[in-house]
């Protein structure tokens, strides 16, 4: 397989403020996306993670600040030129009825063609390479509507790959997939990152998957970055409680060794075994030492802790967004 010979492109944001209509979601956010790495953005619903991704992809125009592609403001670069450096897979893309896999993937070539310049062998080869690496070649002539969710998602990724961009942004690519297909998609993204040193940025809901697949993790809350860096350092019990308002314990993932988040919730089992009570006690002590956001929650009872955590969470979650 040939790898892209273009130099790697860099993506960053400076003092971003973004919102819809009157409501500002991101207030003052700066970030550098590490080149050639997988970056995962996590956070509670309506924390602005999709908004950040859309702004990085120039779908939303920031009210203040700017997104920098190779150091230049992305709004000042012709959108078609951006599309040769940065590819995007929206959260729920729509395909015209009856479109075949090969046809859809082929449309990813749009930024590299002109209406006067006809389809060439290069385009065929790019489509072939994209379909080979996503393993959808065998279903090339099938209509999209007939495919399973996982197959369909791989086809959309193939379309973004046919764009031949160094940077790939994906908005919750695993949301509507079952567990097998979620890992199928995530493994594919790792392959693409390892093989071509592509910069991949994705929004994920599942913290354990985020920890396992991210080189760089960005945790967001209320439109700001709470912390970012190696998942091992970012994902701590304090951070998770801060951004999700949920009490958790963190243990090493028995398979990957990355942090694994185990939520406490209000009920550990259907009949709340007494030994969990002591675990909860230890946990609360730790919190008080660290001076977390739930300091006022002095009560040792696990149930009380979880209750006030969910109260905190309802302050964070505004389900009206998206």
């Amino acid at each position: 397989m040939e790898t892209s010979v273009e130099p790697s492109h860099s993506l960053a944001a400076e003092n971003l403020a973004v919102g819809y209509d009157q409501r500002e979601i991101i207030h003052d956010l700066s970030v550098r996306i590490p080149t050639g790495k997988i970056t995962v953005i996590v956070g509670a619903n309506a924390c602005g993670k999709s908004t950040l991704l859309k702004t990085l992809a120039r779908l939303l125009k920031p009210a203040r600040g700017r997104v920098l592609l190779d150091g230049k403001s992305i709004q000042s670069i012709p959108t078609r030129e951006v599309a040769t450096k940065l590819g995007l897979l929206p959260q729920s893309p729509t395909a015209p009825e009856g479109i075949t896999v090969a046809d859809l993937v082929g449309r990813g070539r749009y930024p590299r063609t002109r209406w006067i310049r006809q389809w060439t062998k290069t385009d065929d080869e790019a489509v072939a390479a994209a379909m080979t690496s996503t393993d959808v070649l065998s279903i090339a002539d099938r209509p999209i509507d007939e495919l399973s969710g996982g197959q369909r998602q791989r086809v959309w990724i193939a379309m973004a790959l046919a764009q031949e961009t160094d940077i790939l942004l994906l908005d919750e690519p695993t949301t509507f997939l079952d567990l097998t297909h979620q890992f199928e998609v995530l493994d594919l993204l790792v392959d693409l990152n390892k093989r071509d040193q592509r910069t991949i940025v994705l929004v994920l809901h599942d913290l354990n998957q985020a920890c396992r697949f991210a080189d760089h993790l960005i945790a967001m809350k209320d439109g700001a970055i709470v912390c970012e860096g190696d998942p091992n350092e970012v994902i701590t019990e304090e951070v998770v409680r801060d951004i999700f308002g949920l009490a958790v314990r963190i243990i090493p993932d028995p398979v990957a060794g990355t942090p694994m988040v185990v939520p406490l919730g209000r009920h550990t089992t259907r009949s709340d075994r007494p030994q969990d009570q002591t675990n909860g006690q230890d946990h609360t002590n730790g919190d008080q030492a660290s001076g977390g956001a739930v300091l006022d929650m002095a009560g040792g009872s696990l149930a009380a802790q979880a209750l006030s955590a969910s109260a905190a969470a309802s302050g964070i979650c505004r389900p009206t967004d998206r």
Partner: peptide, 24 residues
């Protein structure tokens, strides 16, 4: 029409995908 049909085929993929592909 000949000029714009090319763009129509991209527009059909939805606004966000079309933006991502560099369509105005």
């Amino acid at each position: 029409i000949v000029y714009l049909v090319h763009r129509l085929r991209i527009l059909q993929l939805g606004d966000e995908t079309a933006y991502g592909l560099g369509l105005r």
